[in-house]
């Protein structure tokens, strides 16, 4: 490897979260429990609106976003506007009121409201739902299912929060170290990535090198070929930096290392460091 680190920042100086909370909120458990009895659900018009209800609103204001004759909203989802959604709680169908949203007064009329009710989950429903689903082989009762939901949530959250912490440390290291990246290695890494793109495109019966902008957009999810290739270039630069850092801090790559050693080595090293220095609540 010819790329080098010329100034090494101390990774222990990077900011870490004080704690990582892996506890599964009750709201998540309740949402997942509804999946067990979806088949028996019913819909009613509520007396007054509560969080979770679906309403249709007529809105009048000076902002186009809040000036619409019929807009559907799941109350409390935060998808539309939190202030407006909060102000809906306790309202009745037909009621009109004014609320401040994004600093403008908005006149709101609740045109309709509906609430979905689910039967209480049973052990039979839990077992039926779990049947044939990967990872749910041991789920026979509602209690088993709740335990599965909590564990699944914790695993996802651990991966996601640990990923953020580890990437935060690496970002700090990259920003505060200095690297002498070898142009030849960088070009070789980019050529390899472009070959992957060509191979993937060929699998879809496309030619990466002659794709139109629209095809590029659909193939890569990026706005243009230039954006896509710049993203690849950034990734290649980061990979070389990661290699240089790993070799300087963790040690040389073992001769019998598996492909992707740099990723597993940096993850294992930094996950251990984060785990030892952050309070994990589970």
């Amino acid at each position: 490897m010819r790329s080098k680190i010329t100034k090494l920042a101390d990774y222990r100086q990077a900011a870490l979260p004080r704690e990582i909370d892996l506890r599964c909120p009750q709201e998540v458990v309740e949402k997942k429990l509804r999946l067990l009895t979806k088949g028996g659900k019913t819909t009613v018009t509520p007396e007054t609106v509560e969080k979770g209800d679906v309403v249709t609103l007529a809105l009048e204001s000076t902002l186009p976003r809040f000036n619409r004759p019929a807009v559907p909203v799941n109350v409390g989802s935060g998808m539309y506007n939190p202030e407006l959604e909060d102000a809906l709680v306790g309202r009745k169908v037909g009621e009109t009121f004014t609320v401040e949203a994004e600093n403008v007064p908005v006149r709101v009329t609740v045109k309709s409201a509906s609430r979905t009710l689910y039967p209480a989950p049973t052990d039979e429903a839990a077992a039926a739902y779990a049947k044939g689903r990967d990872g749910m082989e041991d789920v026979k009762t509602v209690a088993d299912y709740v335990e599965y939901v909590k564990k699944d949530y914790q695993e996802d959250r651990r991966l996601s929060e640990m990923g953020k912490a580890v990437n935060g440390v690496l970002e700090f290291v990259f920003a505060n170290s200095e690297f002498d990246l070898d142009e030849g290695e960088l070009q070789a890494a980019l050529d390899r990535e472009l070959d992957f793109a060509r191979r993937d495109a060929a699998e879809g019966k496309m030619d990466y090198d002659t794709m139109s902008d629209e095809e590029i957009r659909r193939f890569t999810g990026m706005d243009s070929r230039a954006d896509f290739e710049e993203m690849l270039r950034r990734g290649c630069r980061d990979e070389l930096k990661r290699y240089a850092w790993a070799q300087a801090v963790i040690g040389p790559e073992p001769e019998d290392a598996e492909e992707g050693w740099v990723y597993s080595a940096t993850w294992d090293f930094l996950e251990k460091y984060v785990t030892e220095n952050v309070t994990i609540i589970d």
């Binding site: 997942k32 509804r34 999946l35 979806k38 659900k41 679906v54 559907p72 799941n74 989802s77 509906s114």
Partner: peptide, 9 residues
């Protein structure tokens, strides 16, 4: 499946 009931619109 979760979104189906949450966002029926």
């Amino acid at each position: 499946e979760e979104l189906e009931d949450e966002l029926p619109f």
